[in-house]
Amino acid sequence: MEDEYYSVESILAENQKIQCTFKIDIPDMGHLEGGNERDIKANNKIPLPLWMAYILIYSDYADFTIPAPFSAKVRNALNAEAKSVRLSGLVGAGGLWYGFGKIIMKLLADAPANEMSNILTKTFKNRLSELIDQAQHFAALGPAGGGQSGDVAQNFREGLDGTERELFSLAQDSAKRTKQWYESTDRGRR
């Protein structure tokens, strides 16, 4: 989630495409479109990987539309019940929805960026307690514990994005360690 040049997470979060509309003609770059055209014409819409889109947007060669994982439809669903949205389904398995959102947020102007930030933080907070609850529940079950705790819970787990998965395992490990300690004994020690 960091900006650092060497952050693998940050690189992975950029592994998404966004729809760009070119504002000018660009000669000899038609292969980006995947077609046989030689040049990119103004007003052509092409999905570009984020790392390339950056420079085009900042240099004012292209505009972009808010990508599908943050579309109005998804926003409405998040507003209604953040826990039932499958974030992993939006950005692909192991995808980083929050990381992606953060990059988009940086590309946006002030007002829509604030809105984006609100959506991200609200979603994160709404999902956090369920996330921790489930992590602690699974820590209590022990290594053999199965995931038979209802469809809703399982759906939620499968819908976690990469960042949330990491939090899940942090919480689970920590709860496990503490539980182990409470059950251990020092009586054999002398």
Binding site: G101, M105, T121, K125, L170
Partner: peptide, 18 residues
């Protein structure tokens, strides 16, 4: 017990808060 994920969660929030 809560330190690891509280710290991480706050870190994430720092990044997505404007």
């Amino acid at each position: 017990e809560i330190r690891p994920f509280f710290v991480r969660a706050m870190g994430v929030l720092t990044h997505i808060t404007r």
